[in-house]
Design a protein around this nucleic acid. Structure first.
Lengths: 294, 294
DNA sequence: ATCGAGTGATACCCGGAAGGCATCATGTTT
DNA sequence: AAACATGATGCCTTCCGGGTATCACTCGAT
């Protein structure tokens, strides 16, 4: 096998067609350069240069090998640059999981900021419920999650993205909309309710149950996606508790009513990631987004 | 700059994720391999492997660099192969000049034989008159010519491809065709003659002038291409001396009459090339075609 | 024809790089 | 706690690669 020095020597000689000048260009003397070329030719197994005691010429094989040598040198000089870019986080891949609800509001601005400051970082997006995001983060298939509590603070570091109030989604023209006041528990006693899945959307489920003693008899549907809920409300299947950002969905024939504030815990959305960061792009992204405490 | 050994070491470790096993695969001991990787990381300017005293893992930069390293090694191992192929003549480029007349007959079989025995040799064809071929061979723009004498035997080596008689092309139904005997000088005393260019087709011009004392008053056209001549004969513009292979052109309304043999020097077509062969593909082609004396 | 200049190859020497062996440091397993 | 596994380090030796001096050969000028 030949060496990069031999390749560089060959390229210099091939360009100068003169060992002395080539050696000067390489900051060395002529004799070792001659030997370099000899060794290279031996390693390649073909004459690359025809030396005629008066002038130097490329052979046919030499011309072909020159191209390969240039390609090798170019590749060899670029490889560390890309590696350093990736190590620094300025380049690479960021795999982000997000809940459907976060997609309406925070995801857009967040991606915009990342791609503006880190244009060479590729972003891979997956819509996943919180539980799936946590599994993805733990298995290393995900770098960053946009998820809701609870999650293990021993393993995950996190940054609160926003809190928002829950509202009640009702079909347009629904009697509750006429009240013009905050909705109370009593108002919902006989309303058909579209409820969150207790497994797929555990956070919302727990939150709602904590807020209102839900009459299970009233539950007409159990779904996991906010958009599905709002669509069902629009179809007059019932009313539903949704985060305030659901108003941004722009579904027609739905109104959103405030809930009695005393019991209305705001819902939270967090950016979460494992504490042992291995992806430099994540480290840099967290720093530029100001998510890291330190 | 790093070395190929370092790259090979890194690839081995990255694949084994174990310094000891990687070292064994590389037929060396573990300590120098550890140092190789350290030097490589220093040269690249980024951590490529995360060593954890228990297990070895690739970093993000390491994964990217691994790809580049594999590409480099593949390129480096292929480059000598292609160079050797070209040096041996089994691969490369053969630039062949040919006269229009040779195109009718010998060129096809010749190309067929070359491409059958040397399938990886690219062939570049140019139709050129003999003079242009000689210039091309001397300037190095051409490897092989299919041309007519004269050429300098000091500079060029050659191989006689074929000799053929000259014939007289006459329009169909021409009175001379009725004679049913060889054409003599006297028969042509009053015939309008389509003549070869004395500069562009010097060989034919000299040959014809040597054969028949051409009446310059009879010359109605001066052209350089055999096909043009035959076409003009078909158009009844006159008669013309052409090599026998012109019968293969398949131009309608033309007949070819034999010439008095005593004066009929055959015309020759030679393959010619400069004696100092630099293109290995040419050397090999000449050998497979049995053109070389030695 | 001869001599000098130019150019690549060779001979020889020396310093540093790379590999091997022995050993250390550290974390895991029993 | 002890034994084991594994990568890092220290030290020695060898060998590779560069430098200097010189040779061999060709070409051009006198």
């Amino acid at each position: 096998m030949f060496t990069f020095d031999q390749l560089a020597g060959f390229i210099a000689v091939a360009e100068e067609l003169h060992f002395g000048r080539a050696a000067e260009r390489l900051n060395m003397t002529q004799p070792p350069l001659s030997r370099q070329i000899q060794k290279l030719e031996k390693a390649v197994g073909a004459e690359l240069l025809e030396r005629d005691n008066r002038k130097v010429q490329l052979t046919a094989a030499g011309r072909a090998f020159l191209e390969e040598a240039r390609r090798l040198m170019a590749l060899a000089s670029r490889a560390p640059v890309t590696a350093r870019r990736i190590a620094s986080g300025r380049s690479g891949l960021l795999r982000i999981g997000f809940t459907a609800a976060s997609g309406f509001s925070i995801l857009g601005p967040l991606l915009e900021e990342i791609s503006a400051t880190l244009p060479d970082v590729d972003i891979d997006l997956q819509e996943l419920v919180t539980g799936e995001q946590i599994a993805g983060l733990l298995s290393g298939e995900l770098d960053l999650g946009l998820a809701r509590p609870p999650f293990d603070n021993e393993i995950f570091d996190s940054h609160l993205l926003y809190r928002e109030a829950m509202v009640l989604a009702v079909p347009s023209g629904h009697p509750l909309a006429e009240l013009n006041r905050d909705i109370t528990e009593k108002d919902l006693r006989d309303e058909p309710l579209i409820m969150h899945s207790s497994t797929q959307a555990r956070y919302f489920y727990d939150l709602v149950v904590r807020m209102f003693p839900v009459q299970h008899a009233n539950v007409v549907h159990t779904v996991s996606q906010i958009l599905t809920m709002v669509s069902l409300v629009a179809a007059k299947r019932g009313v539903a508790f949704v985060p305030h950002s659901a108003t941004l969905l722009g579904v027609h024939a739905v109104e959103f009513l405030p809930l009695e504030s005393s019991v209305n815990d705001p819902v939270e959305l967090h950016a979460i990631w494992t504490r042992n960061i291995t992806n430099p792009a994540l480290a840099l992204a967290l720093r530029t987004l100001d998510f890291q405490e330190n």
